[in-house]
């Protein structure tokens, strides 16, 4: 299935995700295995509450796994110092920065934190990376605006610029298209596609825009109860992976058009 010729940056075997509640382990999903190659865009889909965010949090080291192995750049995630991990994986979260007073320039510049000295001073290289990140996301003209003045679409692009400034081979985004209209959803996903192709980044994003993700992703992860599929979108359609995504008495998947329709 997965060609092993390309360099795999993130490899997951038999991962079990979930959380500890008191003494019981609540398992959300298990038997998750995949290999992600450099320069690919991967969409993660699944119904609400299935564990998409938990999977992303586990992959980025914010939450402990309940079993299985995660290897980033050939080394287990458990053996990384948090600062070294921050140089390999950056994130774009659903939450806006908690300080509303932050300017776009300051927000993006904070992405350089893992690379700066104890005081966080920016070198010439840092400034160049920041400037480049702003250019790639088309946010240069927003640089002196405050974050609270931005529209949802602008804020999402700025958050992606911050992750780019962090300069990591892997970028993980948690639902980057929520609250956006169709046009801005397309803009964001096309931007992610461009970054994967031109910068050789491995970009993993969770989304509810299944039809858009099918059109743009190189590979997709489909989380359904008791199963985890990972393949390219066309194979997943012919396998019927999307049909079991939602209860079939309410929503049907049309393999021809790659769209969901509501059943009368």
């Amino acid at each position: 299935m997965t060609s092993s010729s390309a360099h795999s940056i993130l490899e997951v075997t038999n991962l079990v995700i979930g959380y500890q509640q008191k003494k019981d382990a609540i398992i959300l999903s298990d038997g998750i295995s995949f290999k992600l190659n450099a320069g690919s865009l991967i969409g993660l889909v699944g119904a609400n509450g299935i564990g998409k965010s938990t999977l992303l949090r586990t992959l980025t080291g914010m939450q402990a796994s309940l079993g299985g192995a995660i290897e980033i750049d050939g080394k287990s995630i458990l053996n990384y110092e948090s600062l070294d991990l921050a140089k390999l994986v950056s994130v774009v979260l659903t939450e806006a920065p908690s300080s509303k007073n932050l300017s776009v320039g300051e927000f993006v510049a904070l992405g350089r934190q893992p690379h700066t000295n104890w005081l966080g001073q920016l070198s010439e290289i840092d400034l160049e990376k920041i400037s480049n990140a702003l250019f790639l996301t088309d946010t240069k003209k927003l640089v002196s605006r405050k974050c609270f003045e931005l529209s949802d679409g602008q804020l999402q692009r700025v958050a992606i610029a911050r992750a780019l400034a962090q300069d990591t081979p892997v970028i993980v985004l948690d639902e980057p298209t929520t609250h956006l209209d169709l046009y801005h959803r397309a803009i964001i996903l096309k931007l992610l596609k461009k970054l994967a192709k031109e910068m050789g980044k491995t970009i993993l994003f969770s989304t509810h825009e299944i039809d858009l993700a099918i059109q743009l992703s190189d590979r997709m992860m489909v989380m359904i109860p008791n199963a985890f599929h990972f393949d390219d979108p066309c194979t997943l359609i012919s396998n019927g992976a999307f049909t079991s995504l939602f209860p079939e008495d309410t929503i049907l998947f049309d393999g021809q058009t790659g769209r969901f329709t509501i059943k009368d």
């Binding site: 980025t60 914010m62 110092e81 948090s82 600062l83 070294d84 991990l85 921050a86 140089k87 994986v89 950056s90 994130v91 979260l93 939450e95 920065p97 908690s98 300080s99 932050l102 300051e106 927000f107 904070l110 992405g111 934190q113 893992p114 700066t116 104890w118 005081l119 966080g120 962090q166």
Partner: peptide, 23 residues
């Protein structure tokens, strides 16, 4: 003074700060 960098990271919220290597 020694916490200035961490304080700046905390402006983004705890999760972002964690993702940038702050303990």
């Amino acid at each position: 003074l020694f916490a200035i960098k961490s304080l700046n990271a905390l402006l983004l919220g705890e999760n972002y700060a964690k993702s940038m290597g702050i303990n």
